[in-house]
Amino acid sequence: MYHRRAETPQQPPRKPVSKPAATPTPHAQRRRQPGAPETPAFELGIANRVVAHDDLLPAGLEFCAKLAAGPTATYGRMKKNLNLGETATFAEVLDHEALMMRLSGLSADSREAVRAFVEKREPRFIGE
């Protein structure tokens, strides 16, 4: 459970969390694939996978299908949290993240994920 720490008069208000102080957004949004080649694009966080030119469209469509089959409403909440981290204070980010986690935990997709885990099957998300 999330517990908000009260600020005392001795503590100055916190400054917004800037991008350099936080995990860079590309790294937070995408995990690097194990065994991925070391290239400048990977070091900069702008690529996490390399495919041959002829395989680019099928690989892109496969990735899009995987995202579309996932808990899309929760993905949207995660994206809002990442974006808020660039402009809001740390306390605001934590408060917002706690709310978004609660909403996601109460969603139909969350219940489906638990059912699928218990039944040892792939989940069928509906985006709610």
Rank of each mutant, 00 (worst) to 15 (best):
D95N: 14
E128F: 03
R102N: 15
F117C: 01
E119V: 03
G76Q: 15
L99K: 05
A69M: 02
V93P: 11
A73R: 15
E128A: 10
L84I: 09
R121F: 04
A47G: 08
E128G: 07
P26D: 08
A65S: 06
D109Y: 02
E62F: 00
A59N: 05
D55P: 04
F90Q: 06
P34W: 14
A36H: 08
A68H: 05
M100Y: 03
E43K: 05
H53V: 15
G60I: 01
K66R: 06
G60S: 12
K120C: 07
F63K: 07
A52H: 10
S107G: 02
P40A: 01
T25H: 03
R31I: 12
T72A: 10
A116R: 06
T72G: 04
Y2M: 01
L57T: 15
D54F: 01
A91W: 03
P26M: 10
S104H: 00
K80M: 10
M78H: 02
K66I: 04
V114N: 12
P123C: 02
A52R: 12
R115H: 02
L99T: 11
T23C: 12
S18D: 14
S18T: 15
H53L: 14
A116Q: 10
E119N: 10
P71V: 02
A88L: 01
C64H: 03
R32N: 13
K19L: 07
R5I: 08
E38K: 06
H3K: 09
K120P: 06
G60H: 02
R4I: 02
Y2T: 05
P40K: 01
G85H: 00
G76K: 15
V17D: 09
G70A: 06
K19F: 03
H27C: 04
D109E: 03
P24W: 01
A88T: 00
L61M: 12
E122Y: 14
K80Q: 10
